[in-house]
Nucleic acid binder design. Structure first.
Lengths: 265, 265
DNA sequence: CAGTGGTCTAGACCACGTA
DNA sequence: ACGTGGTCTAGACCACTGC
């Protein structure tokens, strides 16, 4: 017998009778490759989400069903799902079930949009697309998005306003082949929802780097401030469920009446 | 019998024989006041840390011992400790034990100091205190620190440099009575370590609000830039283990060669 | 070797949501 | 009434640490 594992290739292991003593099947050699069972379960479930087996918003099978299918105990499935809930890739609701997290406006607002009104209110700004182009990526762009040299990218530039006042001017760079046809249809305000619904790509986490810079003349004109006025530069790289970089976003934000909220926990 | 609970007043409940069926002691009425057992355990342990029963860096009793002392199962203690480990209140090390988290430089660097070099290196700047004063707090100060009107505060102003170059100029406001004698001794670079060691106050989390602003003439002079130069304003409120606001800190940071790193997970 | 946390299982009952 | 996740218990074995 080998270390505990879910049968290779994401195939579930049949339950078949197990030795009565809980973990009696464990402990043999198997020199390498042995993550905890609950992590293997987690990765199996994530792989299925990436493969589109369950779409965002849909319920997963119940813990009992998953446990039976994967040949592990309910407790192990539970630990995997609890961890996934902590990562916001799944939502658990007592009495109802476990659901693939959706990129609805509320989630964006709390997980990915950190600009908050000074009164504490969370607002979602309106967006107006200024331009879209497809081109060969620069070295920096291809590097950030893990594309081969000269890989094609999609660039989107848009102005985001709140109550009609300019708030953010931002540039997005995407891997062109990952989002075929995106440039041909209207671009919605909630882009991560579009990535998920139309392309099956789920943004799971992002890394943001912030600087205070002076607005250049272009930026200043778009934001309706004087050149050199202080603006908050946010450089975001967003990653999908499987860790692939999906979007590079550079935003220049006005922070009069708004601030970037960061919880250190 | 009432709902599951640890005997009132943080006193442990003796183990005494329990009905064999695991949860058979649960289920009676008890109209209100019923958090899950593992949260009660968590709060009992936190209260003890606040009371100084275990100092930072010291080991807690083993899960088995805590379970016996509190009259709950090892699994319940484990769930409480796992949650506390996720909150960085406690550090668990296999084979060694569970320890109260310390505010050593490494923890500060990763949990509370988000300014990172553009090369990705995390640096801890040097500090030079410019002034300390005790005074009646302004309305804003007392409000932020949850002090009564006109409560006394301690103000510290310091310049933080990296490799000799000015990086941050910051003002700290503390409740005076919470830190007696702090103004009479040299102020170390790692303040949270001092709060913990000398005053038994553990900073557990903080909330930061960021803006890009133009440096006023004072700030500009201290940071060696021209007035109006863009600087990153960080407004931090730090809370202790029991949720009390402990420190209000306003920092003006240069972000040339450095950036504020925020992980959206 | 003994003691600690880490993983895994099995089974009970509770609380919630839906029908 | 039923099925879901949430809590709690009990007990097994594993992996690591330090004596």
């Amino acid at each position: 017998m080998s270390k505990p594992s879910i049968a290779a290739g994401a195939e579930p292991r049949r339950a078949q009778e197990r030795s009565p003593a809980g973990a009696a099947h464990r402990g043999e050699g198997e020199g390498l490759e042995s993550k905890p069972l609950y992590r293997q379960v987690r990765e199996t479930l994530i792989r299925r989400m990436v493969d589109g087996v369950w779409a965002p918003g849909e319920p997963l099978p119940s813990e009992i069903q998953l446990a039976a299918e994967l040949g592990v105990s309910q407790g192990t499935v539970r630990k995997a799902l609890d961890e996934m809930a902590a990562e916001n890739i799944v939502v658990r609701r007592q009495g109802r079930g476990t659901f693939v997290a959706r990129h609805d406006e509320e989630r964006i607002l709390f997980q990915f949009f950190k600009l908050v009104g000074d009164d504490g209110e969370r607002h979602f700004p309106e967006s107006r697309v200024l331009g879209i182009e497809r081109a060969k990526g620069t070295a920096a762009e291809c590097g950030a998005l893990a594309l081969p040299r000269n890989g094609r990218v999609l660039r989107i530039r848009r102005l985001r306003t709140f109550d009609g006042a300019p708030l953010i001017i931002e540039s997005l760079i995407l891997p062109d082949q990952m989002f075929p046809g995106l440039a041909d249809a209207p671009v919605p305000n909630n882009l991560y929802g579009l990535y998920a619904q139309r392309y099956g790509i789920t943004v799971a986490r992002a890394r943001e780097q912030l600087k205070a810079v002076g607005a250049d003349s272009d930026t200043a004109a778009m934001l309706n401030v004087e050149p050199g006025a202080p603006v908050l530069l946010i450089d975001r790289l967003a990653y999908s469920l499987d860790g692939t970089p999906v979007e590079w976003r550079i935003s220049f934000c006005l922070t009069a009446g708004f601030h970037y909220l960061s919880d250190l926990t």
